[in-house]
Design a binder for these strands. Structure first.
Length: 477
RNA sequence: CGGGCUGUAGCGCAGUGGUUUAGCGUACCGGUCUGGGGGACCGGGGGUCGGCGGUUCAAAUCCGCCCAGCCCGACCA
């Protein structure tokens, strides 16, 4: 055992770190809370970017880039916003060997600098909607960091849109939330809950924050993406007005939405196992790894056999041939499992004689022999099967660990035991929410769409008052 | 930012005041054999003990500060 992975049952957080390091996704870098995203990790992020970027373009957005440095005064223009972000901002005070007249904040998010520019670009309703996205790095001085899940610097995309009406902006907010939901489910194979955040959990400066919320294998919730309806808060702070079709002057309506490299963490925690990483095929940088098995006498012909197969499969799949002669096949099997490649192909003398190969799926470990001629089609099917199986398994896990809770005692007991998602009636009072957080460590992750109707006739699990919401409680990352 | 644990070769560890050049496993390099689930043997290279400062005749070992990682807490889109 060269690289032992701590089993999940022994220590989930050690397991997570072992998988990240073992699969060579990332490594710690010298500054506290920062990490290097290594090629195997970055390749996953690139595939995420590519899929999301297409979805953004399909919904009418364009990419742009705004600067890293923001005048400190900008951040202070929106009261809630500054209150929310000031504590976690890094500030540049010196440049060129001199103290700056005005300190510059390294962006924790870009609303302020973007809206300062939107003021210049928007005059009339004909300039709207303005639909811009940027891919960027941001910096938040986090006290407690974890690889991919919460780091001081991280990569993300942030969409910032401007609209003529509240309705349009609301529509946009929900449209992008749905883009995130589709991405999570169809590409990441991670089922997510969607809904609105409570006042306590929303974005600093937003009217409403919507989120996709996923369950990890330790039953904790991970917020995987957010979409904010910003109302006219930033338009007012930056005085962004436009002339309506009717000739009136009005403030612009805004949204912002983002997902980050945290998604890589979500991917890892949703699917991986004690052998290492498991990547859903659609996001796997390598879909197939071919491991030839040979003896000295058979080396040449087996390698030729494997190479022919490699050339053929390359036309359709992202495939690598592991022709290294120093490591044993068994070692390679474990290695490719650690890396999370969805399908491994074993081919040796026996296979060669019967003109077949052995396919091994990463998610279940099942092996099957298939004729070489049938391999491409079978691999295509298997990749789809794996994609679906991962989603189904994650969904079943979430269902199995979601409980309808009727009483406060039951809620406390639930989170003292294994925990998971608890659906419970809530009065809407911040005090009740805070009490649950203090006593159980669980927070309201999301108020699912349509929850108000479900809450009718029910009583708050904490206060006994008439319930206004059915809330989903969970311990979270 | 508070409490706990940890930091010795790439990785995992032993050594916890003096025992001659700091050890073991593994990985790495060269070679021979091997090869269908993390191979075997032979021969090699690599660390100054997280960093800085102190105590001492003598420090990996004792003390202080700092840095980093993990866990718990506070905080947190």
């Amino acid at each position: 055992m060269a690289e032992r992975i701590t089993p999940r049952a022994e220590s989930y957080s050690d397991w997570y770190v072992d998988v990240v390091l073992g699969a060579e996704l990332a490594d710690y870098s010298p500054v506290k809370g920062t990490m290097v995203i290594r090629p195997r990790g970055y390749a996953i992020w690139e595939r995420m970017q590519s899929a999301l970027d297409s979805m953004f373009k399909e919904t009418g957005h364009q990419n742009a880039y705004f600067p890293l440095l923001i005048p400190e005064s900008f951040l202070k223009k929106e009261a809630e916003h500054v209150e929310g972000f000031a504590p976690e901002c890094a500030v540049v005070t010196h440049g060129g060997g001199e103290e700056l007249e005005e300190p510059l904040v390294i962006r924790p998010t870009s609303e302020t600098i973007i809206w300062s520019m939107y003021k210049k670009w928007i005059q009339s309703y004909r300039d709207l909607p303005l639909l811009i996205n940027q891919w960027a790095n941001v910096l938040r001085w986090e006290k407690r960091t974890r690889l991919f899940l919460r780091t001081t610097e991280f990569l993300w995309q942030e969409g910032h849109t401007a609209h003529a009406t509240a309705e349009e902006a609301q529509e946009e907010t929900l449209r992008m939330l749905d883009v995130y939901r589709r991405f999570a489910e169809e590409y990441m194979a991670v089922p997510v809950l969607t809904g609105v955040k409570t006042e306590a959990e929303k974005f600093a400066g937003a009217i409403n924050t919507y989120a996709i919320e996923a369950m990890m294998q330790d039953r904790r919730a991970l917020q995987a993406g957010t979409s904010h309806f910003l109302g006219q808060n930033f338009a007012k702070a930056f005085d962004v007005t436009f002339q309506t079709a009717a000739g009136e002057l009005d403030y612009v309506w805004a949204t912002s939405w983002g997902v980050s490299t945290r998604l890589v963490g979500a991917l890892i925690m949703a699917h991986s196992d004690d052998k290492g990483l498991v990547i859903p095929p659609r996001l796997a940088p390598t879909e197939v790894a071919i491991v030839p098995i040979f003896k000295n006498q058979t080396k040449a012909e087996v390698l030729a056999y494997a190479d022919t197969l490699h050339q053929e499969l390359k036309k359709q799949f992202r495939v690598v041939l592991d022709s290294d002669e120093n490591n044993s096949p068994g070692w390679k099997f474990s290695q490719w499992e650690m890396y999370g490649v969805p399908i491994r192909i074993e081919c040796g003398p026996k296979d060669m004689q019967s003109n077949q190969v052995v396919l091994v799926r990463r998610d279940t470990g099942e092996k099957e022999a298939v004729a070489v001629s049938a391999a491409p089609q079978r691999i295509g099917e298997l990749l789809q099967d794996i994609q679906k199986a991962l989603f189904d398994r994650a969904l079943a896990f979430r269902e199995a660990n979601t409980r309808d809770i009727e009483s406060y005692d039951e809620l406390v007991a639930f989170f003292e035991a294994d925990g998971g998602f608890a659906r419970a009636a809530w009065s809407g009072s911040p005090e009740a929410e805070a009490r649950i957080k203090t006593e159980t460590k669980a927070t309201i992750r999301v108020l699912p769409f349509g929850n108000e109707q479900e809450a009718e006739g029910k009583r708050c699990v904490v206060t006994g008052e008439p319930a206004r919401h059915m809330a989903v409680f969970a311990k979270s990352y």
